[in-house]
Design a protein around this nucleic acid. Sequence first.
DNA 1: ATTTGTGCAAATCGTTTGCATCTGA
DNA 2: TCAGATGCAAACGATTTGCACAAAT
Lengths: 143, 143
Amino acid sequence: MAFSKERLRDQLHEAGLSATHQRLALGELIFGQGNRHLNAEQLRREAVAASIPVSLATIYNTLRQFSRAGMLREVLVDPNRAYFDTNLGEHYHFFHEEEDRLEDIPANGLAVTQVPKPPEGTSIRSVDIIIRVRRGRDAQGKI
Amino acid sequence: MAFSKERLRDQLHEAGLSATHQRLALGELIFGQGNRHLNAEQLRREAVAASIPVSLATIYNTLRQFSRAGMLREVLVDPNRAYFDTNLGEHYHFFHEEEDRLEDIPANGLAVTQVPKPPEGTSIRSVDIIIRVRRGRDAQGKI
DNA sequence: ATTTGTGCAAATCGTTTGCATCTGA
DNA sequence: TCAGATGCAAACGATTTGCACAAAT
């Protein structure tokens, strides 16, 4: 679904969030340029560059609210900071360890078979697959 | 390979770490009861319970050193704390979100086919698969 | 008008580090 | 002996929060 300011307002409204200047402007930065991965610090730099008046606290709050509202997905890949992904579809990730950078793997580029039954009494919430890569040869290709 | 105090000393030596009381005692807690997952806080509680004189800083240092030495594997599953796994073999994880608990999935309980080629010039370091589960029905079974 | 969001600074929490003191080899 | 380890407390960095002010509905 393509980005538009109207759609963003709708999404905010559906999530019970009012359409403030900051949320609209951050939303445009986040969703206005195709699928991407970002963390709070990156978003803050972009906001500064775009002359959006917004505090760091509001950036954190906004990322959290957008995640809770299902507009972003948090990707756990780095113990030191939280990454968010605008791509909500089924897909996985390469993580470039030396660059702290995520790259999508489309779901059809990877197949998981024999997904084990979840333990009795539980149901699957999500399946996260992260393939960590580094520059250089000699993959130790576990799997 | 089974745990023994002698083997632990050897491993420490191979890693260039001296066999101090703290490292031996923590190593026994960590490796002496089969494969397990733990975080710093759990290990501290166990150390206190076992009357091992050790500071929290040393617990953190030890977990880090054991990881670097390849004796433990860090599992990125919770943004709030670091988990370590004594199981170094090929396997994946269920993460029980409500209990903050990891559970192993043996590699032969899960098959990944068509692992995509890593991006040009990079090689695969590891493949992490985490299946997040919750109590209750109605899996939204992505994948 | 009333609720909700924002900004700032302070608080939090897991983790790391500086440094003086011990201890294993 | 003496390089390396430990403990303590202070430092750290990402994230969250309390509260007074401002904006949204």
